[in-house]
């Protein structure tokens, strides 16, 4: 793993992307024992509009806690894609929800398109787990934590009754991206 790996989860406020960031940070720092810092947009922009959550993962203690050049960015909405894809590292990754980001930004980064909200809605059966589908997809795309660590972190956050739902969501997201990138 690189010295410092930066991930950004962006979308509309209320889509659970801050939670997705927290779970990834837990997977890295609690399950895998790496260093992780999670931060998020706060205040008016976190309530509707474009919202983001950032996770920095490293083998060493993390100094500067904010994103500098984003290695991998998730955008669930067009507004988020336009606003938050600007500082993706040259050669970095942008994962978009293809149903909501009609015009993916163009830049020196690779764009991966997949249905995220619709996978949650139609295949898992609950739109509310779109953030966990997205998390599974980001883990598959970046391999910043292992699939098992991601799943462990997801499951340690959800009540018993929702374990299967979230497990399905995480793994569907993971597998869909793996199928796409081969």
């Amino acid at each position: 793993m690189a010295e410092r790996y930066e991930l950004r989860f962006s979308g509309a406020g209320g889509q659970g992307l801050i939670t997705a960031g927290i779970i990834l940070a837990e997977a890295a720092s609690i399950v895998e024992g790496k260093h992780a810092v999670q931060s998020q947009s706060y205040g008016p922009e976190a309530r509707g509009g474009a919202s983001k959550s950032e996770v920095i993962i490293a083998d060493e203690p993390i100094d500067y806690p904010k994103a500098t050049l984003v290695d991998a960015c998730l955008a669930m909405t067009q507004e988020a894609a336009d606003k938050y894809s600007k500082d993706i590292r040259p050669g970095g990754l942008l994962l978009v929800d293809e149903d909501f980001v009609q015009n993916p930004p163009v830049g020196d980064f690779k764009v991966i398109k997949m249905p995220i909200v619709n996978t949650a809605k139609n295949e898992v059966g609950r739109m509310i787990v779109a953030n966990v589908v997205a998390l599974g997809a980001m883990v598959a795309l970046t391999e910043v934590v292992s699939r098992e660590s991601g799943e462990t972190a997801v499951l340690s956050r959800v009540p018993e009754a929702f374990r299967e739902l979230n497990k399905t969501a995480f793994n569907l997201g993971f597998e869909k991206v793996k199928a796409l990138i081969g």
Partner: peptide
């Protein structure tokens, strides 16, 4: 400050 007040670390 707000930055470390709101960010999460292990």
């Amino acid at each position: 400050d707000e930055i470390i007040g709101h960010m999460r670390e292990r």
